[in-house]
């Protein structure tokens, strides 16, 4: 290297060096590339090409469930009186109503386009999932952090968890939906009133694992309050755990809503669960299968996409993968 440079430039050995004046300000700088946490998260996330595909699928799903119903006005009973328009296969429906995107899944029991019904249902189901996840995660994570950190709270909360955890969820939900009418907000209330408890318990276990590390001990010695230690020292450590948890929680609300609707305890809005419940009989009727498999396929796509994006984002938000 040195010999090569010398023969290339023809300079003497001494002339290859240049004088640098000492600067106090410069010497204080640390010569490492600037590290931004969230930039690194997205760099790692987009390094995997599968994620780009899945993310665009997620965008597609969101566009279809929020923008598509807003652009087309969907009235499930518009074709109610059209006797010949019910339970049609895609081909027949396009022949009957004219060619259009909304007939590609055929028509349903009251002549409504299954495709529109599915995306309107998807909007309700996704909204429910996001709403419940937002409420449950906020309460669950904050309380879980305190629960794990304070030993006094731990004793009480563990007993509460043991008792409330044993009350069947279906019972709580059905009692609530009988108390109030089974609307969207009742459902959110029912799913969040005890839903945060299991999230808080999960976070509590994670906190217990890292609570007694030295830096927390040091913080405590310096007189930092428990809540501040929980929020400032422990929560940042658990970003990837929380994102991973969110990845399992979001699809689980959609699945749970489908389950509740199937056993007849769902909400009154035509969510994906209600669509599946209503079309159960269509599954075994030849020619009507799309009415059932349409919503089932869409709900599966939504949950898988949400889960995979969340899991990979969770992996990417772990600083150990940022090398």
């Amino acid at each position: 290297m040195y010999e090569e440079l010398k023969s290339k430039t023809g300079l003497k050995t001494e002339e290859l060096f240049a004088q640098v004046t000492h600067s106090d300000a410069e010497s204080e700088k640390i010569a490492a590339p600037r590290y931004s946490y969230w930039k690194s998260v997205f760099r790692v996330f987009f390094r995997n090409k599968v994620n780009i595909v899945i993310l665009s699928l997620l965008m597609f799903v969101i566009v279809f469930s929020y923008i598509y119903p807003a652009l087309t006005d969907y009235d499930p009973y518009a074709n109610l009186l059209d006797v010949a328009g019910k339970h049609l296969s895609p081909g027949d429906a396009m022949e009957h109503f004219g060619v259009g995107l909304k007939w590609i899944l055929g028509s349903g029991a009251s002549g409504e386009p299954t495709f529109d019904a599915v995306w309107n249902g998807a909007k309700i189901s996704i909204s429910l999932a996001f709403m419940c996840a937002a409420i449950n995660m906020t309460i669950g994570v904050l309380l879980g952090a305190v629960w794990g950190f304070s030993k006094k709270v731990d004793i009480i909360m563990t007993e509460v968890y043991n008792i409330i955890g044993n009350v069947p969820m279906i019972l709580i939900i059905s009692v609530l939906s009988m108390l109030f009418s089974p609307t969207f907000w009742t459902m959110v209330f029912a799913l969040t009133i005890v839903g945060w408890l299991s999230i808080a318990y999960f976070i509590r276990t994670q906190v217990v694992i890292i609570r007694d590390r030295e830096y927390n001990l040091a913080s405590r010695c310096l007189g930092t309050s428990t809540i501040k230690i929980a929020v400032k020292n422990i929560l940042p450590f658990m970003t990837s755990v929380i994102v991973t948890l969110l990845a399992t929680e979001l699809p689980s609300y959609i699945s749970y809503e489908v389950f509740l609707a199937y056993i007849g305890m769902g909400m009154s809005d035509m969510s994906l669960g209600r669509l599946i419940y209503a079309a159960e009989a269509a599954m075994v009727t030849p020619g009507w299968e799309l009415e059932f498999w349409g919503p089932v396929a869409v709900v599966s796509i939504i949950t898988i996409v949400l889960y995979v994006v969340g899991q990979n984002l969770g992996d990417a938000s772990d600083p150990r993968t940022h090398m």
């Binding site: 699809p251 389950f259 089932v296 898988i304 995979v308």
Partner: peptide, 18 residues
């Protein structure tokens, strides 16, 4: 595993049934 965790149980039970 991803399939089973993410997809609603109702959907895959019907799939197995079909």
């Amino acid at each position: 595993i991803v399939f089973i965790i993410a997809v609603p149980s109702l959907a895959y039970i019907f799939l197995f049934k079909a």
